[in-house]
């Protein structure tokens, strides 16, 4: 969700936002390339930048927000260093994908679409990763993990980050 008082608004370099916005002319078509550029550089599209973008392109802020929220590949919340994608496709579902998702949520302490406080992990789900033979599956930082079970899962997070149980 687009939350204007995002947790780390102090860290956003609004000067840089204005610079990037300034590179695009006053016309509505550059909206998508502009927000993509912002996201490439900042990792996400800070909600604070929406009024600036809207002002420069002659759009309404709510309109810009609407476009950003329409595309799943655009984010207006900071994302973790590692994106965890748990598969909820049919094959994975049949083989316990739902439980895996539940455990990941427990492990990270976040819900789908959220990011951990320490900005290490963002949790998402996907329709099918395409390796159904290895179900249940998940992807962490673009690496596929198959045949998941609770034990593997705990190990994965222990190994992968500096996260501890309890």
């Amino acid at each position: 969700m687009c939350n204007v008082d995002a947790k780390d608004s102090s860290r956003i370099d609004m000067g840089r936002v204005r610079e990037i916005v300034g590179e695009y002319s006053e016309n509505r078509w550059p909206l998508i390339p502009l927000v993509q550029k912002l996201q490439d550089e900042m990792g996400y599209i800070p909600p604070e930048s929406i009024p600036v973008i809207a002002g420069a392109l002659g759009l309404f802020p709510s309109e810009v927000q609407g476009v950003i929220s329409f595309y799943t590949q655009l984010y207006n919340e900071p994302r973790g260093k590692n994106v965890v994608r748990v598969c909820r496709g049919t094959a994975c579902h049949v083989r316990g994908g739902k439980t895996i998702l539940k455990l990941v949520k427990q492990e990270l302490g976040i819900e789908e679409g959220e990011t951990t406080e320490d900005m290490e992990y963002t949790l998402e789900t996907v329709a099918c990763i395409g390796v159904c033979a290895l179900a249940p599956t998940m992807v962490v930082s673009n690496r596929v993990y198959g045949n998941m079970n609770p034990k593997r899962l705990r190990q994965l997070f222990k190994k992968d980050g500096n996260r501890h149980d309890g």
């Binding site: 687009c2 929406i50 009024p51 309404f60 709510s62 309109e63 927000q65 609407g66 929220s69």
Partner: peptide, 25 residues
């Protein structure tokens, strides 16, 4: 948007979650 030109609300999110929302909801 068209009559009073405030643009307070617009579609927000997609699919079943779509609704007319204000900036920052």
């Amino acid at each position: 948007q068209e009559l009073v030109v405030e643009g307070v609300v617009d579609y927000y999110r997609r699919g079943f979650k779509t609704q007319p929302a204000t900036l920052g909801d």
